[in-house]
Amino acid sequence: MNEGPDLDRWLPELEPPPGGLTALRERLARRESRRAVARFSYSAAAVVVLALVSSLLWFAPTRDASPLAIGDDLIAIRLGLLDAPSELVSVAPDRRHKQALQRVATRDERVALYLAGSI
């Protein structure tokens, strides 16, 4: 089948519009600058969120009397490394024969801790 002349006639090679390479370069540059702006925006947003979380943690009320600290105190008292508090705590009359209570000092005045033991 002699297809050459027919194909040349049916499917002539056309020239694309001029300036293709320049247009491609411009589109690439535009895309890169858009991506740079997007990258900067994401980074800025991440920094803002981080700053917000940090400031919330910074200004949150601190609690010195953590359970762990109180536990440490109790262990230290048990081991004799720390003096037991001297302050006596009143106990209901009907229970006095069964328990003695002592208040343990903690670093947080809002926390009341008592040592209890059978008499």
């Binding site: 499917l11 090679e13 056309l14 020239e15 694309p16 293709g20 390479l21 491609l24």
Partner: peptide, 17 residues
């Protein structure tokens, strides 16, 4: 990008057609 541009110069016309 040089590789891309070289390929574009070579293939622009046939792909366009």
């Amino acid at each position: 990008q040089d590789d891309l541009e070289a390929l574009y110069v070579r293939l622009e016309k046939p792909i366009y057609n």
